[in-house]
């Protein structure tokens, strides 16, 4: 760990010094300092991943968890399948899991897109109009405090065993976190910036597209990190509530557990966990690309 903190300091020192502006009369100095900081930043990530101090703790914890699992599983064969059995379940019929994972994933993602678009639209309406805010926000809050798990069976009754109730549940469960974050983001433009553009009489639409929406991006990504895993929860919950549904990992779990095929249950759960992790990883990657300019990313890199 000592190595990392060292590079952190060399990275932080020049960036920390430049905002004081001592070097303004000498622009070249400031340029050199930020360039040096940038190069330290650029080199760091690739190197740090290979360092044992970075990956060893995670791998160690994983091994410990695996050993504990095996100890419990060997003594309670009817409660917990052994890791080898879970692996075998996947290896013997990979296409079965892939197909069902694909169904759940597409339900989760389509529902998420619906929830996302709706939430951004509502957030814009609510921040632009006080009347709409007072009309919509109480409804949104009520919707949020109602457990989606409780709504799911009713939706299945209303919309049947097809994809519709799953998309609605996923959209509902993702809607509120995105809404609240985007509202905060749209209001996060600093007052001096708004004053500058007020004296230019930029239209409300220009302020929205050029100032408010770009400012909200950091909050959008914070929301996405919460909401991507949630969307899978939504899809699985909806599949549980529609036991007759043909496909999906949620269906696999409910059918296999009623038949006491524990290895299949845990194999499906493993698939869900992997899916969630991959989605989270992709969002984080995208965030790094899009928010290069933002302080939070600089701190992570520097």
């Amino acid at each position: 760990m000592t190595d990392t903190t060292d590079t952190d300091q060399t990275g932080a020192a020049p960036t920390g010094a430049t905002p004081t502006g001592a070097a303004v009369a000498d622009t070249a100095l400031a340029t050199a300092a930020t360039a040096a900081a940038a190069s330290v930043r650029r080199r760091q990530p690739s190197r740090s991943l290979l360092r044992p101090t970075i990956w060893l703790p995670a791998v160690g914890a994983l091994i410990v968890a695996g050993v504990l699992w095996e100890i419990v599983a060997i003594n309670n064969t009817y409660l917990l399948p052994r890791l080898g059995m879970i692996g075998q379940a996947i290896v013997t019929q990979p296409s079965f899991y892939l197909e069902n994972a694909g169904v759940t994933l597409s339900e989760a993602l389509v529902g998420l897109v619906i929830g996302f678009v709706a939430a951004v639209l509502v957030a814009v309406l609510v921040t632009e109009s006080g009347i709409l805010r007072r009309a919509i926000m109480p409804l949104a809050v009520v919707l949020n405090v109602t457990p989606v798990v409780a709504i799911a069976p009713a939706l299945v009754v209303a919309f049947g065993f097809g994809p519709a109730p799953k998309l609605i549940v996923t959209a509902l469960i993702t809607f509120f976190p995105i809404l609240m974050n985007v509202i905060t983001g749209l209001n996060s433009v600093s007052p001096p910036i708004l004053q500058v553009f007020a004296t230019l009489r930029a239209s409300r639409f220009e302020v929205l597209t050029r100032l408010r929406l770009p400012s909200s991006l950091t909050f959008v990504f914070a929301a996405l990190k919460v909401v991507f895993p949630l969307s899978i929860v939504g899809a699985v919950v909806a599949e549980f509530s529609a036991p007759g549904a043909a496909k999906g990992l949620g269906t696999v779990i409910s059918v296999a557990s009623s038949n006491s095929r524990l290895a299949v249950v845990y194999a499906a759960i493993l698939c869900l966990a992997i899916m969630g992790s991959v989605l989270l990883f992709l969002v984080t990657l995208l965030e790094k690309r899009v928010l290069r300019w933002h302080e939070s990313q600089r701190l992570l890199r520097g």
């Binding site: 600093s190 910036i193 500058v196 004296t199 230019l200 009489r201 300019w293």
Partner: peptide, 18 residues
């Protein structure tokens, strides 16, 4: 303001970070 006759420089730079 509507004719952009006024240039305002606030206390902080107020630049758009992106």
């Amino acid at each position: 303001c509507a004719a952009k006759m006024i240039g305002f420089v606030p206390q902080v730079p107020a630049l758009l970070p992106w």
